[in-house]
Structures are given as C-alpha cells and as structure tokens.
Amino acid sequence: MWDTIVVDPITNLLLLFYSLLNGQTLLAVALLTVLIRLAMIPLTMKQQKSMQQQRKLQPKLKKIQEKYKNDQERLGQAQMKLYREAGVNPASGCLPLLIQLPLMLGLYRAIIRALAATPLGLLELAPHIYRVDWLPNLSALLPLQSQFWWLDLSLPDPYYVLPVLVVITSWIQQKLISAMTPTTTSSKDDQAQAMTQSMQITMPFFMGFVSMSYASGLSVYLVISNLVGIFQYYLIGKSEDDSDSDE
C-alpha cells in the first residue's frame, strides 16, 4: 500500500528524470529532491503561518497560564477559548506535517531502492517499475549509472565529504527552525525547550550517521533537501522580520 501510493510513483519519476537527463543519476536525484521540496512549500508556509498566529497569542497565553496555574482544566478551557476567538486551530500546524512526512520518506525510500547495487536489490526493484506504453521503457535503464567523480552513488562516500555536508546543512536548518520559535519564560516549557535544543544537536549527527551508512545518493538528497529548507526558512524568517518592523 505504502509502496504503491508513495514510493513507486517517486521511484518511477526518478527513473524518468534519469532518462530525460541522459543517464545523470546525481542530477536526477537533485532535480527530484528540489521539485518535491518546492511542491511542499505551500504546506510549509501554512505550517509557518499557523505558528506565527500562535506566537502572536503568546502574551495572552502567558497571562492565562499565570492565572490558572493551579487549575489545569480551567487552563485548557481558557486556552481553547482564546484560540477559538482568534480563529486559530492549534492542530492546523500538524496537518501539513502529516502530508510532508510520507513524501519525504517516500523520496528517501525511492532513492535507496533505485540505486540498488546488488543482484537481490535489483530483483526486488523490478516489479515496482511501471510498464506503460506512454512512458519510455524505464526498466531498461537499470541499473542506474552510479559513478560520479569520486563517488559511487550506490555506496557510502568513502571520504566522508557528503556526511560532513549533511551534518553542517542539517545543523543550519535546525538552527533556522529554532530561531523562528521564540523562547518563553514559562517554566512548563523548559522541558520541551531542552528537548528541542537537544534535537538541534542530535538530529544533524543522526543524519550524518545515516549518510555514512547508506548509499551516497541518499546523502545528495539530504544535502539538497537541507539547502532548499535553509533557503526557504531564511526567506520566511526574513519576511517575518520585515512584517514585525512594519508593525
């Protein structure tokens, strides 16, 4: 089900790009990553807008938290009333996330699968390739040409250049995301803030570990995805700064 709806279409799109780009695997991965990230921009913007609205309510929320600090039930009711009056749905930030995640993970799986370097990996890929008259014979393209400079895109980077880039770009992206989420003085948020800060450090290194362990084609995806994310969050942050100064 997951394969049919998400991974297979992305895998075949990757092969189509590979065909159109004259067998350039790296360019095909890069193009697909950029397109999918661009396609997700409206969702990201919606998520950011929701966060922005919630941030504007923070002063009022703080007052409510102070007022009902000993009564959780009344606190919840008051918070919901505030959201309702402001026309803000606190869960609306999660919906775009639920749509983005399968796409990102589908892209990840498609790249790993399409770069199959072993006989078994290639045989497992075969049934997932579309065979329709209006498309070129995508299965004849396999296995993909995986050599690019020092890299065999189907194997981990032997010189760790890409894992280092993955760590750096992941860290910058995490930093930009957290910069958009202002800190509060509420003690109740301390635990969450500590966890968020911890994620800022652990996530880039975890991504670096994944990059070291898997095909370097996946690292290309991670670096490009991060760069698009950095550019996107930079623009969002800049526009927020401009609107704040206007106000």
Binding site: G93, L105, T184, M199
Partner: peptide, 23 residues
C-alpha cells in the same frame, strides 16, 4: 506541558528518528 507551537517540531523529529531507525 509542551506548548502547542513546540509540538509539530517535536513530533517531526521523533517520527523521523523512529522511521530512520526502522529503515
């Protein structure tokens, strides 16, 4: 206890970690 604005970010991080560990 986690403020609503922190939830999506934490959920994203946790989900990614879980799924990547699975893969």
């Amino acid at each position: 206890n986690i403020s609503t604005r922190s939830r999506p970010q934490l959920a994203l991080g946790c989900l990614l970690l879980m799924l990547l560990v699975t893969f």
